[in-house]
Write a protein that binds this DNA or RNA. Structure first.
Length: 324
DNA sequence: GCAGGTT
DNA sequence: AACCTGCAACGCATT
DNA sequence: AATGCG
């Protein structure tokens, strides 16, 4: 069954924002008819760094609520893995795939019919703003959705290019690699879009064909990556072990697998200052101010206001990924 | 962050 | 009542 | 079979 109406994914109204403000550090927030229990909103989850302020739980709540309409495109009908940081970066952080115990009954769940053993648990499927806010209350800083939807868990919706910098990879090297993918995709007449990860790397998301399996997307990204790597062999290593890569970048096509996830567009990263994974236009690869952690919780709303969501161009696109 | 178990 | 603990796991490559 | 890797 598809998720609810897009009203479920709307940003808060002015009245709802005011109500959140009035809670102070703790209370129950009614968002689009759903009550979410919030606590420790003033608690620091991510520390300040340089000019960037600390990120509190309240800041995270405001971020996910404000970006809910964008999150819908990448989270609706998908299981999501969580990186939770309840006690900040100095405390214990942990990954979670199962629905957290004590989750409200209105949180949507999905059990992978092919799961066995330890995987056979209910997973969280975010179905609107209230769910996003509850996840923020759970201190789920990073949201990593599946590439496939729960309605067709074996159909890959995107082919994912992961440019993973090595020890000696400069930002300019990463940009060189991204530009080569830009050229290759243009020559193939394929639509795709890059985003900065908020950490060190870049990813490129390429919509797949609606009936593509993970073997198809994996093969396509491997072939494309080997083509790109062949042009600049001095920048790319195909060695498996990190200590044999000579500091070079890895083009990690193995992310194209059923249970693997990449950080969602607009997700905060668990790092000081709260950097955000932000979709960019291809031409921004040539912007000398671009950085992998260019935007953070404090300034990403302004970025969205001026540039919108370049990934919107990918929504609903289906295209055949050729054999190269 | 929170449930569940242990001291 | 205070404290402690768990909270992910797939596919590929190499040894 | 076990480990490294993301």
């Amino acid at each position: 069954m598809a998720s609810g109406s897009s009203d479920d994914w709307r940003s808060p109204t002015d009245d709802e924002w005011d109500a959140l403000e009035e809670l102070g550090d703790e209370g129950t927030w009614e968002m689009a008819g759903t009550e979410v229990r919030l606590s420790s909103l003033d608690k620091e989850l991510l520390p300040a760094i340089d000019e960037r302020p600390e990120v509190t739980k309240g800041d995270l709540v405001r971020h996910v609520a404000g970006f809910a309409p964008q999150f819908e495109h990448y989270l609706a009908d998908r299981a999501v893995n969580l990186l939770r940081v309840p006690d900040g970066l100095d405390g214990d952080s942990f990954w979670q795939q199962a629905v957290p115990q004590g989750a409200p009954e209105w949180v949507r769940r999905w059990q992978d019919p092919e799961a066995t053993g330890r995987q056979a648990h209910d997973r969280v499927v975010v179905d609107g703003t209230a769910s996003l806010v509850w996840l923020a209350q759970m201190a789920a800083v990073e949201l990593h959705p599946w590439t496939s939807s729960v309605t067709s868990p074996d159909v890959a919706d995107y082919a994912l290019v992961d440019i993973d910098p090595g020890e000696d990879t400069t930002w300019e090297d990463s940009l060189t690699l991204a530009r080569l993918f830009r050229t290759a995709l243009a020559e193939l007449d394929l639509v795709g879009c890059p985003k900065v990860t908020g950490k060190r790397g870049l990813q490129i998301w390429v919509p797949a064909g609606g009936d593509a399996g993970f073997d198809d997307t994996s093969r396509f990204v491997e072939q494309l990556s080997r083509h790109v790597g062949g042009i600049v062999p001095e920048l790319v290593s195909w060695r498996w072990r990190t200590d044999e890569r000579q500091g070079k970048a890895r083009l990690d096509y193995t992310q194209n697998a059923r249970h693997k996830t990449l950080v969602a567009p607009w997700s905060v990263r668990a790092a000081p200052g709260g950097p955000v994974s932000v979709p960019i236009g291809w031409d921004e690869l040539d912007d000398e101010d671009l950085r992998p952690d260019r935007w953070c919780v404090a300034d990403v709303a302004a970025r969205f206001e001026s540039a919108g969501d370049p990934f919107a161009a990918l929504v609903g696109v289906t295209q055949e990924l050729p054999d190269l």
